[in-house]
């Protein structure tokens, strides 16, 4: 019961926001500590120090606001705490896990996009601009867009051609050439 109350109260505050804010604060802190250890710290910290204190203050205010929401929700014990419809059926959870992952990825296609973007940059130098971009677009369009293979190939090839002509030919940008030479 108490766990349910805790979970209910936690849903009123944005855990993701708290974690992200702490991550930003951590990064600012790490930068501040690094700069403090450099020679001529006084000159280096002239601007960075006040900025860091502002970041720290803002982080505290943001996190405090979320914690206040959590405590307010926790104190309000009569809201949904005893609702039987909210009880979780453990047996059902296990069998739904596979569907949930597929559903999750389907609803969060951006995760697939991000992963493929990293892969794209990973192969860019080796395979070269033309092939890497073609494979990236084809893979993403096929997996996320669920288009037929013909459309995927046409769109990918056309996009690569336009980008190559625009940047490589017209603007004479030296695009990465992989092991195949282009």
């Amino acid at each position: 019961m108490k766990t349910n109350q805790f979970k209910k109260a936690a849903s009123y505050c944005n855990i993701g926001l708290i974690i992200f804010t702490l991550a930003l604060l951590g990064a600012a802190m790490a930068y501040f500590i690094e700069v403090s250890g450099l020679p001529q710290a006084e000159s280096n910290l002239l601007f960075i120090k006040p900025c860091y204190y502002v970041v720290m203050l803002c982080s505290i205010l943001i996190i405090a606001k979320e914690i206040r929401k959590f405590w307010a929700a926790l104190k309000n014990k009569t809201t949904k705490a005893d609702d039987p419809a909210e009880e979780i059926d453990d047996a059902v959870t296990v069998s739904k896990k596979t569907d949930t992952i597929k559903q999750f990825l389907d609803e969060h296609k951006e995760i697939v996009l991000i992963v493929f973007s990293f892969l794209y940059l990973g192969i860019l130098k080796t395979l070269g601009y033309v092939f890497s971009t073609f494979f990236f677009l084809s893979a993403v369009l096929y997996l996320i867009g669920a288009f037929n293979k013909k459309l995927v190939i046409i769109v990918s090839a056309l996009t690569v051609l336009i980008l190559y002509v625009a940047f490589g030919v017209c603007l004479r940008v030296s695009l990465p050439k992989g092991i195949l030479g282009f």
């Binding site: 940059l121 288009f147 996009t159």
Partner: peptide, 29 residues
């Protein structure tokens, strides 16, 4: 579903075009 990956390809190419460094593409990502 077509525009989004094309924007990424365009953005990466634009980032690279600035000074020819793949590091800038990672920065953009």
């Amino acid at each position: 579903k077509i525009i989004a990956p094309v924007i990424i390809a365009l953005g990466m190419t634009g980032s690279y075009a600035f000074r020819g460094a793949i590091f800038d593409c990672f920065t953009a990502l």
